[in-house]
Design a protein around this nucleic acid. Structure first.
Lengths: 224, 224
DNA sequence: GCTGTAAGTAACTCATCAGTTACTTATCGG
DNA sequence: CCGATAAGTAACTGATGAGTTACTTACAGC
């Protein structure tokens, strides 16, 4: 997992200190990964340039091949890193309410907010799907991560059904795909949607409305 | 609008007849457009090769520049053509029931089936959004097409609210985005979803289940 | 039946860019 | 304190591919 902030390009001066860290494998690797995440998200797998990634990372292009083998290997590492990050956030999610309805609403809103705050994840996922998920399928890391949100949905569905607050017979995986999709589509397709509806989808008001709407849809559906 | 089937490469022999049609501008243009649709959908804007498009179309590469100016111009033409096609299908949609609930179910299922039958549309839209909708924004054609499905949703929402079958206060555009998104995401992200859930999302059974689920969500939400 | 223009061809150009080579230098375990 | 190895640099290469050039040929309108 990479902190995208606070990564100094390898070879840069330390904070305040005048000693120049001449070598720092960890940092070089991390700064290449961070730079690659930005570049791949902005320009796609084909569109991104290894020279630009290296320059942005403050590293030599040779180092990409040293650490990641190839441009595709680097892309795969970026995806693994990004998946690990979202799964980590999901696992850290603490729902503040024990009430299934309230908790489910929080979960849906969390999902919406996550896509809002991580546009690079949306872009990378789109890119990966354009390539038939070749890199995810090649990655043991990405495939072996467990899915905290699906577990959570399962648990809420069960409790809500028992208490009579939710309908019964809902497949948690289907619901997960719907919760993700209903928010994801809004962000992934916001450029064409904005152009066609001539609406500014990223305006604060539009975001607030949408957020409310997606919560309403899921909770409205789940009523018994 | 292009018929993707039955387009003979320019310069090919006619059916049965031995006369070789030496020149046919319409056909050359159409076959380039059809070939480009396939290539761009399969490999993206950067990934597609103009040489491959020309070969597939049975045309000379020069003709791409003759008719479309540039690779980007060709991509824009492909998008316009594809948008015109979906809007045309939407306009032709005849809901068989007057009952708002039944009609809305048919509309949602139609949307699902459309994405299922037109994977190239999903890919092209993804690609276009990866590029910030640059080509849609540049296209008067794409932006000026009206949106039959939004009109239809509006009308059904009104009738359903009046009859007490639907909740009130639903924004038709929000609902349109949700109906599209809930199906679109399933198809656009089916590669990564399949890999991660280790499920075959395109199996007939999975499709049937999903189709039922998306209809249930929308109708479940719309209950008063 | 001639002529201007649109349709078409084949071969070329030249910028771009992933990946490599051949090299130097820091670091750390023994 | 040495030598093996990992980290790092700068300059190169070779393939690729968008777009062009310089040309030929069909054909509609006169």
């Amino acid at each position: 997992m990479t902190e995208t902030t606070d990564i100094k390009p390898a070879g840069e001066l330390g904070n305040g200190s005048t000693e120049r860290t001449t070598r720092d494998p960890e940092r070089t690797r991390a700064s290449i990964l961070a730079a690659a995440t930005q570049e791949f998200a902005a320009k796609g797998l084909e569109g991104a340039r290894t020279d630009d990634i290296a320059r942005r990372a403050g590293a030599n292009k040779r180092m990409i091949y040293h650490y990641f083998g190839s441009k595709e290997g680097l892309f795969q590492a970026v995806l693994e890193d990004t998946y690990a990050e979202i799964r980590g956030s999901e696992a850290a999610l603490q729902l503040t309410s024990r009430d299934p309805v309230e908790a489910m609403g929080q979960l849906v809103a969390f999902s919406f907010d996550w896509f809002l705050k991580h546009p690079e994840f949306v872009k990378l996922l789109n890119e990966e799907n354009l390539h038939g998920a070749a890199h995810v399928r090649a990655s043991n890391v990405a495939r072996s991560l467990n899915m905290p949100l699906v577990e959570l949905i399962s648990e809420l569905l069960e409790r809500g059904a028992k208490s009579g607050q939710f309908r019964t017979g809902v497949d948690p995986v289907q619901l997960y795909i719907s919760i993700a999709g209903i928010s994801y589509f809004y962000f992934s397709n916001r450029y064409t949607l904005s152009a066609i509806f001539n609406r500014q989808l990223e305006a604060p008001g539009a975001l607030r409305e949408r957020r409310e709407h997606v919560v309403d849809i899921i909770l409205g559906y789940l009523r018994p």
